[in-house]
Structure formats: C-alpha cells, structure tokens
Design a protein around this nucleic acid. Sequence first.
DNA 1: CGCAAAGTTGAGCGTCCTCAAGCAGCGTGG
DNA 2: CCACGCTGCTTGAGGACGCTCAACTTTGCG
Lengths: 268, 268
Amino acid sequence: MLNTETTAAFRPLPSGTATHAAWTAQPAEPRDAAPAPRTASRIAETLRTLQDVVPITRRVVHVGDTIYHSGEQFRSLHVINSGFFKTINLAADGREQVVGLHFKGDWLGFDGIAGGQYGCDAVAMDTGEVWIIRYDALIAACAKHPPLLGMLHTAMSLEMTRDRNSLLSLCTLSADARVADFLRYWAESLAQRGLRTDQITLRMTRAEIGNYLGMTLETVSRALSKLSRDKLIAFNQKGRREVQIPDVRALCAYIQRSLAPAGSAVLQ
Amino acid sequence: MLNTETTAAFRPLPSGTATHAAWTAQPAEPRDAAPAPRTASRIAETLRTLQDVVPITRRVVHVGDTIYHSGEQFRSLHVINSGFFKTINLAADGREQVVGLHFKGDWLGFDGIAGGQYGCDAVAMDTGEVWIIRYDALIAACAKHPPLLGMLHTAMSLEMTRDRNSLLSLCTLSADARVADFLRYWAESLAQRGLRTDQITLRMTRAEIGNYLGMTLETVSRALSKLSRDKLIAFNQKGRREVQIPDVRALCAYIQRSLAPAGSAVLQ
DNA sequence: CGCAAAGTTGAGCGTCCTCAAGCAGCGTGG
DNA sequence: CCACGCTGCTTGAGGACGCTCAACTTTGCG
C-alpha cells in the first residue's frame, strides 16, 4: 500500500471513523447525489446548444484515428458526440502517458488554448463522431449566447476534477485497488450517460490500462484475475475485454478495504 | 523503475534515440523556447488587467491559512498575487492528496465552477496575498473586456497541462527521479516568475512532498540525501529546507538517466 | 494454417514501504 | 539555565508489493 498521509494529522484513521463511510466513498463527484440523470441532461443540453449557436464540423472516426497531435497548431476544440477516446501525453524524451479517457459529451483540446498548440494526442478507441468547433467561433458564440460560456467552463472544471481524482487514485491506492477503481470509474462514466453498466467492454489493451494506471500489463492482468476470482467482476467467455460488474458497490467496498488492511474495523 | 510503455511501440528506446534529447527533455512546456520572460509578462499583464477591469478583494494570508475548503459554496476564483499555496483533494474516506502547488499569478478554485462548490482545500504555505474575484463579476467583466476571457482560459488550460505533467511524472519516474523532477519543477516555476533559483526554500515538510509525489517521507528523505551525495543539490547548513541547485540541467540529465538505466548510450 | 498480437501465469528480484531508533531544532516551563 | 516534550528529519533493517523476464495459451487475421 502506498502512503495516505502528509502529516501526523493525516495518519490512517483509527478505522472506526473510516468504516461508516466505506461504501459511499468514491473519489469522483462526491457532491452529486444523483449524478446519472444530471450529467446526462447536462450533456444533452450542451450538445443541443452547440448545434444551435455555433458552427460545427462533424467528423466520423474509427479505432486508432488521431483527432489531433501533440504540437499541432491549436484552432479547435472537439466535443465527443459518440465513441470513446484517450489522450496521450508525449514527453520530449519518448515517454508516453495516457492521461485521460473521454466519453460522450466530453470536450477535447483544452490544453491547446494556452500555448497555441495541442499538448496531447487524442486517439479514438472506437468508432464515433466528434464535433469540431473552432475556438474563435466558440468564443464569438459565447458572447451572443452566455449560457454556452457556462457550459464551456463547466466542462473545463470537470476535466480538472477528473485529473485530480486520477492523481488521488494513483498516489493512494494499491495496484489491485487502482484497477478496481478504474473499472468503477468506467462504469460510472457509462452510468452517467445512461448506458448499461452491468456489461462493459474495455476498449483498451492491458498495456494501455497499465500505462494509464501506472503499472505494468502483467500487474493489470493479475489484478483482473484476482477480481474475477473474488467474484467482483466476471469475464464473458470468449474475449477477456468484456467485463461484467455484478455489483459496483461491492467494487467500491473492495477499494475501501484495501485502504485499511490492518484494522479489524470493530476494534477501537 | 516504473513502466514507460503501453504497447510494444512504446518500449524503452534503444538508447541511441533517447540520449540526444537527454538534457533538453523537460515535461513542462516543451513548446516554449523562452518560458521565463514570457510567463512573467503574461502574469504581470493578467494582474494588471484584473486590477483595471474587475472588482477585487485582497486578502493577506499566513502559513496554514485556508483560502477555501472542499465542499464550501463556490462563488469566487482566487488569483495569487504573492506567496505560495497548495491544493489538497479530500476523499470521502479520509484520504488526503496534495494535488497542486501554486505560485504567483496562478488561479485557484476552477474546480468549483462545475459543481457549485470547491473540490479541494487551498492552503497557504507562506505569507502572501490573494485576490478574491467573484466569478459572476469576472464573467461580466469578460463580456466588456474580451482579452480577460482569454487570460482566464489560458490559466485554466495551463492548469490542465500541469496536472497532466504530474501524472506523467508519477507514472513514469522512479522515486528518486520524481524528487529530482519536483525540485526541477519548483526551480522552473520560480524562474518563470523572475525569482532566484540557485537557492530555493522548500516550504513543505518531507511528508507533504511525499504525499504530493506518491511516496513516503522516508523515501523523500533518502532521495534528497542521494541527490546531495551526488552533488546535484546542496543543503544549507542549518535547516534542511533550503536547497541549492547548482545546475538545473544536471538535474534534468539525472532524471533522463534514470529512465534508461540499462543502455550504455554509445552502443548500437 | 501460420503468424502476430494480446493475455495469463509463474519465478526471481529490486524498489520502495514499514517499523524502529536516534538526532536536531525549538518553544515551554521548572 | 537546562530538562522536557514535540515536530521534523535522517538512517538502518527487513519485508512486501510490483516489476522483469520468460514460457505458454488464446485470439484474430491474412
């Protein structure tokens, strides 16, 4: 297990305080009591508004297509209408890091605003459609239609929250728990968009998952096998990319359990 | 060492390709040839503009002061006029994670826009001054003074780039290299703001640094001792919080070296 | 059918965590 | 004044988690 404290005050809680919040604890969006419908309607409203008030270029993409490259001149933001995408941060020394996973309604390309060029590669992991929106046109449209600006800022704000939650998982969870949290996050993302979560199809290789989670593909494979043995997930016969999650809350409980392996919760 | 690949194509470069980019490679802002003056002037211009076109409440803070708490209702963004701050992500289960370090000119509170409440605690690590800017007033001011909107978006964009670079370091660097990269980042941040970098004062305990970097305080301490033994940094006698970095580029080279420990660079 | 890519599993080992002891700086109080 | 406690830092010993290397199986495609 990794560290969970910064100062003495942060030391693992004496278990009593931690456990009552056990299954409720989820890094993402703790504030939102009913995230699914709210997120779904937010996304729908954003897409509707965009169609109405700003010029859009639609682009259909297939697995492996790159929407934009790191270093390419920034002109447009991209909104996912359907499909599933990853963003990859490329360091000058050749390191590659998957830094984000993106679903319907997510915006892509914010990191290009500051420097005038994109900072990541955005790659499609499935067939889908993105809406290309020129940044200057978007800003102009925001001036005429103020709610759109709010939507833009909300999207950027959510992006940061997600990044921070990634950091939290990365720094505080064991490898097994990180994989579990990854599945939980994926299921949650689907749920928020009104999609099925009992049966999800991972559109990433073990190596990609491992890169995203900061571990090797072998460790990912072992963690998935362990979760399967523990009946927290199940694989579809034929194809280890399909994962069933019978009970997301059990998955959350597993993550919590791995945080405090020492304490028998009842004692003191 | 952690993994650096996602697929076979990502496997550690055969050393020849990696080494020629050795000392130039820095995760942050590879695009900007001369970041220091550009960043400094950008910050100065932003602060000037803010003073001119939007109502500001100034607040002087001291070590340990919290600007806002996670969960608190969001109304204002905060811009650092002086001082140094950290943001802490609090999970429902008690985990605490330092997710960001912030210097003069940085904005704080973006993560509150989406949900109507802040997602982190922002804590002062030194005496300083923040400018409190009501979000609604800021948006109104942006309507009248469009460049301000650009500055806002630039700040948000930079924030995301920084978060991604943190992810990259966390996932691809060893503990020693992560500490070195932390010092490099700190020095770079000071340099961009026109401050001295040969002698920097860490305003964090080993435990805080460790939390931020995803390791224990002991590991931080050992890494610093090692860097000191290797003459890449030096401690001021009296006080292990003051660090001298005689040569930042040597520090970068050290980080690069730890990426490809296998290859004698000349071969092949 | 054969080959390549993806995935699983095992054995061995290294990095980093855990636990522990000791030291240094510092404010408090006897 | 020094004892005392407290916090922060360093260093060591031992162990665990996860990486490395390797062999093998399964899946998919030409």
